[in-house]
């Protein structure tokens, strides 16, 4: 698309001083206003949500109050109350915090598993790669959402930790495959071969040579995964197989909309959560896309 002029810019950069990773990213954000706004929004939202929820009492908010059922937005309850008389606004804050937390947790966990798995398979190749890829294939056969739901119902003491664990168990394959194919390409390059002849051990090569060269891919993938994971968690909570009601997430608020009455007449319960999830996912994606462009010299705008 805009390859030509960008390439010229690149050459100009080479001629002068090479920009550091951060300044490349920073320039990309300056150039892409949407991504910049998304980033600022995310920073503000995160601080706000984690900050405000410090002052909110989760037990207080999720306590059923039968005298205040289904109240529309008012001065006392900015966004009204749900069927248990619980403050929707408070749930929204806590829900966002919980959704973000689990999203980040699952993304990090799947990221670590995926990167380790992918690097080992790709770097060592051969039989190791074969075995690891067959195992991965078996995970890929399973219909993911259904498997997660089935596991959620099977686990005896179900809670936030087990839920993240189950999600992680069935979500690491994508990043593992991506990293593996990249590692497979990268290890054939001469600089890795050179390291071998220079006497570096495999561990050393992986950590000091291979990983620094695939960091951008990892960061970009994990950012995009974060958006997907927030969506997935809220979807599962929406179906009733995510967070328990005592720990509301954004999906929990949406799940009230499965009641046609709530959906039709009490928009204040579910619509804010719907918008928030949408905006959150869009913002995270915008940031991810900007990072992706920054990582690939041909796509850079800045």
């Amino acid at each position: 698309m805009e390859t030509n002029n960008v390439n010229m810019d690149d050459q100009k950069q080479d001629a002068t001083k090479s920009p550091s990773g951060f300044s490349i990213i920073w320039r990309e954000f300056i150039k892409d206003k949407v991504a910049l706004i998304s980033l600022i929004f995310l920073v503000i939202l995160t601080t706000l949500v984690y900050g405000v929820s410090l002052f909110l009492n989760q037990e207080e908010i999720v306590r059923v109050d039968l005298f205040a059922i289904h109240e529309p937005p008012s001065e006392e309850f900015i966004l009204g109350t749900d069927y248990g008389g619980r403050d929707v606004f408070g749930q929204l804050i806590i829900g966002t915090r919980n959704s973000l937390s689990i999203g980040i947790l699952v993304t990090l966990a799947t990221g670590i598993i995926g990167v380790v798995y992918g690097v080992v398979a790709g770097y060592f190749g051969g039989q190791i790669d074969n075995v690891l890829m067959r195992i991965l294939d078996f995970f890929l056969i399973l219909p993911m959402i259904m498997t997660v739901i089935v596991f959620v119902t099977l686990v005896p003491d179900y809670g936030v930790i087990t839920f993240s664990f189950i999600m992680t168990m069935f979500l690491w394959m994508g990043i593992a495959r991506l990293i593996r194919s990249r590692a497979l390409q990268e290890k054939e390059l001469d600089y890795i071969q050179a390291s071998k002849t220079l006497g570096s051990s495999h561990t050393k090569i992986i950590f000091t040579q291979l990983l620094p060269n695939i960091t951008s891919l990892i960061v970009v993938t994990m950012t995009l995964n974060l958006a997907a994971n927030i969506g997935l968690e809220s979807g599962l909570s929406f179906l009733g197989f995510g967070f328990p009601e005592s720990t509301p997430s954004l999906g929990t608020l949406l799940s009230y909309a499965r009641n046609p009455q709530t959906l039709e007449f009490r928009w204040w319960i579910w619509l804010p959560a719907a918008i928030l999830i949408f905006v959150l996912m869009l913002a995270v994606r915008n940031v991810g896309e900007a990072l992706k462009r920054a990582a690939d010299a041909r796509q850079r705008r800045g």
Partner: peptide, 29 residues
């Protein structure tokens, strides 16, 4: 781009709300 970032269930819910309930153009269940 937006469609990519929209979770299906939220979109379907909003569609049902708008076209099924608010406008009443389509059956809701």
């Amino acid at each position: 781009y937006v469609g990519f970032a929209t979770p299906l269930f939220i979109f379907a819910l909003v569609m049902l709300w708008i076209f099924g309930y608010q406008f009443g153009w389509f059956p809701t269940n």
